[in-house]
Design a protein around this nucleic acid. Structure first.
Length: 246
DNA sequence: GCGACAG
DNA sequence: ATCTTGTCGC
């Protein structure tokens, strides 16, 4: 078996590193068809969070990825893993997965134990072709995932979002519901939540709410962001001073 | 044709 | 995404 508990065909190399945007678009459509928007995940004992960090004007295009594991319901970090790879493409709205997934896969391979459900910094199916990075990563690894974005890509709240923490509004796009907009904290911009893979729309929102600890971002994604920054700093320090360990 | 546009 | 410390306001 080449994927974690799957009997689906393997992911063709061209789907991970398409030769051009037209091929990338076709790959997204194929991968999006594999998204399972239902609660098809094991009991959650360990939650995961993933994020990437980059350097402002880095001509080399390095992508520093981090994956963290938190226990549930404690929400304490119990494991972290990171990896730095050069991006194959620049940031292009709608094609984030092709830029960040490779580095995330490298970090994922080093992670132990593996979490039961992962929260990704970015959209799930709330994407033009239904394959935001959370769905992309989820399908490629065939793992349960949730998209937790900090700003919209497509669509808008059905109605003005309430100011109170916990307020929600359906995320609508072209007459379809793609996810939920959630006010996670007072006076903070909302979170854009959508299904990644192997989770229901309701489950996605419920898990994010359960992981809120007073900050704007749910703990898994918040910790992943901190971890990704640490990976970047470590990589920069390592590049400046080749060997420096005793 | 024009504007929008995750990280 | 990232540049950047303190600071003003709820």
């Amino acid at each position: 078996m080449d994927q974690a508990g799957t009997d689906l065909p393997a992911i063709p190399p061209d789907w991970l590193a398409p030769p051009d945007l037209a091929a990338a678009k076709a790959a997204q459509i194929e991968l999006a068809a594999r998204v399972v928007p239902r609660d098809a995940h094991p009991p959650v004992r360990l939650l995961g969070g993933v994020d990437i960090s980059t350097t402002r004007f880095d001509p080399e295009g390095w992508v520093h990825a981090a994956v963290v594991v938190l226990d549930w319901p404690g929400l304490q970090v119990v494991a972290r893993a990171g990896a730095s790879l050069r991006a194959s493409i620049p940031y292009i709205p709608g094609y984030l997965g092709f830029r960040e997934v490779p580095a995330l896969l490298a970090a994922w391979a080093r992670l132990e134990p593996k979490p039961d459900l992962v929260m990704v910094d970015g959209h799930g199916v709330a994407h033009p072709r239904g394959l935001g990075i959370a769905a992309h990563l989820g399908v490629v690894l065939d793992i349960p995932s949730i998209g937790v974005a900090k700003s919209p890509l497509v669509g808008r709240p059905e109605a003005p979002l309430g100011e109170e923490p916990g307020a929600v509004q359906p995320l609508l796009w072209k007459g379809r519901r793609l996810g939920t907009v959630l006010r996670s904290r007072r006076r903070a911009n909302p979170l854009w939540i959508s299904v990644g893979h192997r989770i229901s729309p309701e489950g996605a929102v419920e898990w994010v709410r359960r992981c809120l600890t007073g900050y704007r971002l749910p703990e898994p994604t918040r910790q992943a962001h901190l971890a990704a920054n640490a990976v970047r700093r470590a990589a920069l320090a390592g590049a400046a001073e080749p060997e420096a360990s005793s």
